[in-house]
Design a protein around this nucleic acid. Structure first.
Lengths: 132, 132
DNA sequence: CTGACATCTGAACACTTGTTCAGATATTCA
DNA sequence: TGAATATCTGAACAAGTGTTCAGATGTCAG
């Protein structure tokens, strides 16, 4: 941890002023790797769509096939299949074929906890987009 | 669980066949309200951006001002301000003015848990976009 | 008040995203 | 095999998103 020996700071921006850059560097170093953060964001983004979150909420109740899922959330089976492929690629859901049908369920309890945690926040008093 | 009394099912789609519609209706009824799911999705979507998730991860370590946050994640201060407004409107961060500077921090422990939960999933062996 | 600084804001742009559509694949039954 | 069902897939379009840019607001020092 260098502690800014002399450095009159040629570039006298705020970052080199009040909150010394050393602290910023420390925080930067403590952050998860860029790749991990990328995966994290990708996962959250998958949860960040009304259609998909409905599908996942439904799947947290019961295993379901594509067409039931589609009718449940009110989209075409094609659209559902596209979404399920995304969710599957991120290991949020898992598929199981039975005859001509494919049943989907949440991949693990992790996802349930994630949904519940989010619901807790969403259900908080005065949640949801309050300007200023 | 009712067991599909008669119902020859005029509309012989899959939804009325194997997984009886009654079960689907039960699940639909058990889902959180549409508005809650909307807020939930909006919250997750806010977390679903690499820039924002970096900002939040940084804020989980320390309170920071806009320009430190901007330099930390490598975007302009204007862009940071835009993102912070979004995060603030969703109650994910909270601001505090001190002189000309504005410091941001996570709104509550909820957010930390949400991030940690997501990180746990993202850090899982073989996480992150595996095709098929 | 004036100048400097930190942050905020609206408009506009390139880029991404979710859906639809048409058709392909896979499985069952006659 | 051939028809029917359930799901999957690629291309393409409309809608939404994050950034940049220029300028506005609010705060402090002189």
């Amino acid at each position: 941890m260098p502690q800014a020996p002399s450095a009159p700071a040629l570039d006298d921006r705020c970052e080199t002023r009040h909150a010394d850059p050393a602290r910023v560097d420390l925080i930067r170093a403590a952050l998860p790797s860029g790749e991990t953060l990328e995966v994290l964001a990708e996962t959250f983004r998958a949860l960040g769509d009304p259609t998909r979150v409905r599908m996942l909420a439904a799947l947290s109740r019961s295993e379901l096939c594509v067409c039931d899922l589609a009718s449940l959330v009110g989209i075409s089976e094609s659209a559902a299949s596209h979404q399920l492929r995304l969710l599957r690629s991120l290991r949020l859901v898992r598929s199981r074929r039975e005859g001509r049908m494919v049943f989907y369920r949440l991949d693990d309890d992790h996802i349930v906890r994630l949904l519940d945690q989010g619901l807790e926040h969403a259900a908080e008093p005065g949640a949801g987009r309050e300007e200023r």
